[in-house]
């Protein structure tokens, strides 16, 4: 692994996750730029056969242990740190997902290695490893140098979902697999008892062609009917960002984003949503994105096709009226 670019292959409920393929696609580019091999590190229990899905890498290091059946961050970090001990990979790319969050930090601490969170892109320039990071809820971009080449240990880079297309990192083939032996202590301190499946909502957001999404800029639960009327006029459904769900204004089945659903409607109207990376990851592939936000600097305008700087609460009824008027005119024509 020394000198290599490595990717932590994430598996969840028996499958390699989509974000792993995205991260492999990015890792492949960086490895090619640096002229070094790409290694995928796959922790798990009795899942060596998953290695063949990691064909974007040149080699797979498989870490098998019963305690790795479910991804518990401290256990997984300990296993990966042991597998990497004595080796000096240039970088380890870790997907920033709800499954792996915290693992990168813990590996960095255990190996005394630098950690860079929030990476959207990685590149090698003049021998330096540079990361483009999106921070402060999407409002700031930073270019960060991730550890001197001669520095201690590899650079641990947390990669935002969506950094590359998963298709580019998906390759099924026989890859050389090495087994890494690790010694893990079963403290029983953290045990997954069960998964709680999401309750089916009254509508399936993923099947809607039009979504009217509201965020904290909705200001008040009392304004929710304005969004519902707009959704009705457009023939779609209402969904929301995390704060709207956390406040109980909409049920969990209506949350879009990292912890919620990933949607790809024909039209996504984002009202009073700032455009934090965790939200964008759930809706960036909508065919047409319209954003209404009172802040001209809101990051949502970076993914929107059309933008309106203004008050969402005022815009909703105006847009509903305009849609209704146009529909009426169409019927009479």
């Amino acid at each position: 692994m020394t000198g290599n670019i490595c990717v932590l292959a994430e598996q969840w409920r028996g499958q390699i996750t989509e974000v792993t393929y995205e991260t492999l696609a990015l890792g492949r580019e960086v490895a090619d730029q640096a002229g070094v091999p790409l290694t995928a590190i796959l922790p798990g229990s009795h899942c060596r056969e998953l290695a063949r899905f990691l064909g974007a890498a040149d080699a797979v290091v498989y870490i098998d242990h019963p305690l790795l059946a479910e991804t518990v961050p401290q256990t997984c970090a300990e296993a990966v740190a042991q597998a990497m001990a004595g080796e000096r990979p240039r970088a380890l790319l870790v997907p920033l997902t709800n499954i792996s969050l915290g693992i990168g930090t813990l590996i960095g601490v255990r190996l005394g290695a630098p950690v860079v969170n929030f990476c959207r892109d990685i590149r090698v320039a003049d021998g330096r490893l540079l990361a483009d990071c999106v921070m402060y809820g999407g409002k700031i971009e930073a270019t960060v140098e991730a550890g001197a080449p001669s520095g201690p240990g590899p650079a641990i880079l947390g990669i935002w979902p969506g950094a590359r297309q998963a298709e580019k990192g998906r390759a099924e083939r026989e890859v050389p697999v090495t087994d890494a032996a690790v010694v893990l202590e079963d403290t029983g301190a953290i045990r997954l008892c069960r998964y709680i499946e999401p309750e089916a909502g009254d509508v399936d957001l993923t099947k809607q062609e039009v979504l009217v999404a509201v965020g904290r800029g909705l200001q008040d639960r009392a304004n929710l009917p304005l969004a519902e009327e707009l959704a009705r006029a457009l023939g779609g459904a209402v969904c929301g960002s995390r704060p709207v769900i956390d406040q109980g204004w909409l049920p969990l089945s209506r949350q879009v984003g990292k912890s919620g659903l990933t949607v790809k409607p024909k039209l996504y109207v984002a009202l009073g949503i700032s455009g934090a990376p965790e939200h964008i990851e759930g809706m960036k592939d909508a065919a047409l994105i319209v954003a209404v936000n009172s802040d001209p600097q809101a990051p949502i305008f970076s993914v929107a096709h059309y933008g309106i700087v203004g008050d969402a609460v005022e815009t909703m009824p105006a847009l509903t009226a305009a849609v209704e008027a146009r529909k009426a005119a169409g019927q009479h024509a």
Binding site: G108, V116, P296, A298, Y306, T315
Partner: peptide, 24 residues
């Protein structure tokens, strides 16, 4: 271990979306 910010800049969304202007 070294993590050095080389450059920080504001995400300037302007220029990305086509902005519609006027009263609601």
């Amino acid at each position: 271990p070294l993590v050095g910010v080389v450059e920080m800049k504001r995400n300037e969304p302007a220029g990305h979306a086509e902005m519609l202007e006027g009263k609601p």
